[in-house]
Amino acid sequence: MKHTLSVLVQDEAGVLSRISGLFARRGFNIASLAVGPAEQIGVSRITMVVQGDNRTIEQLTKQLYKLVNILNVQDVTNIPSVERELMLIKIQINSQTRTEALEIVRIFRAKIVDIAEDLLIIEVTGDPGKIVAIEQLLTKFGIIEIARTGKILLVRTSKINTEYLKNRVVAYGT
């Protein structure tokens, strides 16, 4: 099962090496990793998606805490949170397919950020499910390049899980 960890670290030389070294040495698999400055100066937030069962994640968390630069590790897999990822995707188009591509972009509320005679760069933001969905739909045009940031997230203070609510509404509707 995939787990999402939100990790706060001191922004010092070598901290990312220490973390990636730990993953490599102890055989943990990182599915995605996103790093950037957090709210406090000198502190970075790392959002990582890791494959493993509960025991693996518990061991990983304990091992991470042994690194002196690590301030906090939170397993947010089952905590209501806002999850976002940004993708830039470059696809092939021609005069026949352009309209359909633009239609998909509109439906997904994505943006065209560069357009040429036969190529299009689309910027799309959303939860990881949306990113996968648009990528699948754009496959048939011919994908030239993809760049993704990896998932970032913040825990919802409202403690409301919109995904969960959506499912409830559907359940009541039937």
Partner: peptide, 14 residues
């Protein structure tokens, strides 16, 4: 040496 010893120290400094 900082990089070489990363997996075998509790912590390290330059």
């Amino acid at each position: 040496i900082f990089g070489i010893t990363l997996p075998i120290v509790k912590h390290s400094y330059v």
